[in-house]
């Protein structure tokens, strides 16, 4: 029953976003609301088994979604802006020192690993190449390794990022 309700709610919110501005009831028209409710019930009937496959409901907590939004607007966007200035500098000058390092963020859930891998790929000169599925170690290709980091067996997260510790935020969102 819980997977059904969550899937229906999620589908209905997506439908509302896609049809915002269609009428006079706040932003939506009556027929759109009725059709959205009907379609989200159909969607939930078909796909509740996929959407909540691992019976893990911690992302149903709105506080986690608020933290995710704060993370995307704050630390993530600042790191991303810095990443782009950095990569732009390297595109123009051609000064690079590439290599693949190993980091150990210590995350446990699949969603946490996904969020951190995507965050790393979109921030300063770093690109996730491989994730070890047993230990959840990340292999990160860096465009400019600081001198000394290539000697370490596992690099520190602060060798990869510039200002913020992403794993701490991710743990607050997804674990």
């Amino acid at each position: 029953m819980i997977p059904f309700i969550l899937t229906a709610l999620f589908a209905f919110i997506i439908y509302l976003l896609l049809t915002a501005g269609s009428g006079e009831l706040v932003l939506w028209s009556g027929p759109e609301l009725a059709m959205g409710a009907f379609l989200s019930l159909v969607t939930a009937t078909i796909s509740r088994g996929f959407f909540c496959a691992n019976r893990d409901y911690r992302m149903a907590n709105p506080v986690r979604w608020g933290t995710l939004a704060a993370y995307l607007i704050g630390p993530f966007f600042i790191e991303m802006a810095k990443a782009n200035v950095d990569v732009a500098y390297r595109v123009i000058t051609g000064r690079i020192r590439p290599g693949i390092v190993r980091i150990r963020p210590g995350l446990k859930t699949d969603l946490g690993v996904l969020l951190l891998a995507n965050s790393i790929t979109l921030t300063p000169g770093t690109l996730t190449v491989h994730v070890d599925e047993e230990t959840n170690d990340f292999f990160v290709h860096m465009i400019n390794i600081k001198p000394g980091v290539e000697q370490k067996e596992t690099a520190d997260i602060m060798d990869v990022e510039a200002f913020f510790s992403f794993p701490r935020w991710i743990r607050r969102i997804a674990e």
Binding site: P98, G99, I100, V101, R102, V129, H130, F139
Partner: peptide, 13 residues
Amino acid sequence: PAEAVVDRLAEVN
């Protein structure tokens, strides 16, 4: 990776 100073992934994989 070309010009790489270190490649930890090649050690395990």
